[in-house]
Amino acid sequence: MRVEELIGVSRGILFDFNGTLSNDEGLLEQAYDSALLQLGLTRLDPGEYAALLGRSDPDIAQAVLEHRGEGARINEFLSALADIYPAASISAGCLTPDSVAFVKWLLNNDKKVGIVTGTLRSMIEPVLAEYGLAEELNCLVTIEDVQAGKPDPEGFALGAQLLAVKAQEILVFEDSNAGLAAADSLGMRVVGIGGAIETPRLAAHYSTMDDLAAEVVALEGS
């Protein structure tokens, strides 16, 4: 099924944020590195961050700190990360004009749209506000709103509840196998973004959100 057909038969749309709606995994890794340096700790090892992709930011932070024998400094580290990431993301344009336009197009076409993310509210809200999305989205579920992050389906279940849409009528955009497992377990269809997700289990797959957004915009204009 083509993406426009998937969107057409869906009443609700839920986006993962980091690495999906926002093209920011490289920048986020840099933010972790900067936060470690700010706390006077050693920088990330090669491949350390990549091995933790798909987990929530608190889980990644805990693993990174425990690797350095500094697990008790989790709140200090997350505070530093929340200070560093939003401005860096906005400056780098990680949430691109095409992706923002795609979200607004969905809303204008009577779709209920939200975000389910393993990041912190303090990291995502300033970015959404910068692009005029904070007040337009129908829901925002962050790691603070659930007991367990992906692959636990709690976040997507809460997103469906807040959208007031049945899980089977929701289309999810995800970049991680943990997110895919969470959404799939609820019967949600999943469109994969990027190269780190299991394509055989996806309803569709795109290299970036911009590629998907460009296709939808092109179809609308044809």
Rank of each mutant, 00 (worst) to 15 (best):
M1K: 12
A148K: 11
L106S: 09
A80L: 13
Y85N: 02
D98L: 13
G132L: 09
P200H: 12
N109P: 07
H205V: 11
L39Q: 12
E29Y: 02
R189G: 02
E198F: 11
L163H: 12
F102Q: 07
D210Y: 06
L107M: 14
T96A: 07
D24R: 02
F77E: 03
V103K: 02
S207Q: 14
G194Q: 13
P126S: 11
V172Q: 10
R68A: 11
Q161L: 12
S185R: 07
L140N: 09
A134K: 13
M188K: 10
T117L: 00
N18R: 07
E70T: 06
R68L: 12
A88C: 05
E125G: 01
E29W: 00
N75G: 09
R201G: 12
Y49G: 03
A61V: 05
V190W: 04
P97K: 07
S222P: 08
D24H: 04
A80V: 12
D59F: 01
S10N: 09
V113M: 00
I90A: 06
E29N: 07
A134I: 07
F173W: 02
V100F: 05
N177M: 09
R2I: 10
E220A: 13
P46I: 10
E66N: 15
E29P: 01
L158M: 13
F15D: 04
Q161T: 13
N177D: 15
A218N: 10
I170G: 01
P151E: 05
E215T: 12
R11W: 00
W105D: 12
L27W: 02
T20V: 09
L41H: 00
S34P: 01
G26N: 14
L41Q: 02
